[in-house]
């Protein structure tokens, strides 16, 4: 069986890639994808802990299923908003979306 540490390191790497994506990208679509990566890193973590710490219970797995569900919903909403923004401003660059400051 793969040791727990490996899974955790994998998940940390995945999370960091997602974090980098959120901060470095300018396109709203790519930021959403990066957020998805971070969520999946968390889900992997949950599944790993569920399998290692308490194999009899499924709570971690169930949680992971929830995370996937929520992620899908969130992405649907997020993309819809991005679509609306694109229709109105013909751009999805987040640097352009600064009308709300001050």
């Amino acid at each position: 069986m793969v040791p727990l540490e490996h899974v955790l390191v994998f998940s940390a790497i995945l999370f960091s890639i997602g974090l980098y994506g959120v901060m470095a990208r300018r396109s709203a679509v790519l930021i959403l994808i990066a957020i998805e990566l971070m969520l999946n890193a968390v889900a992997v973590n949950l599944v790993a802990f569920a399998a290692y710490v308490d194999p009899q219970q499924f709570s971690g797995m169930v949680f992971a299923v929830f995370v996937i569900t929520i992620a899908a919903a969130e992405l649907g909403l997020g993309l819809a908003i991005v679509l609306r923004v694109y229709r109105m401003r013909t751009s999805v660059n987040v640097d352009d979306l600064d009308m709300m400051r001050w």
Binding site: L19, V22, M23, A24, R25, R26, I31, V94, D95, L97, D98, M99, M100, R101, W102
Partner: peptide
């Protein structure tokens, strides 16, 4: 303090992290 608000999402995320 209001001029601290830039409206740049990634700056907020950076501060957050």
């Amino acid at each position: 303090l209001r001029y601290l608000e830039t409206g740049r999402v990634y700056q907020y995320a950076f501060a957050f992290i």
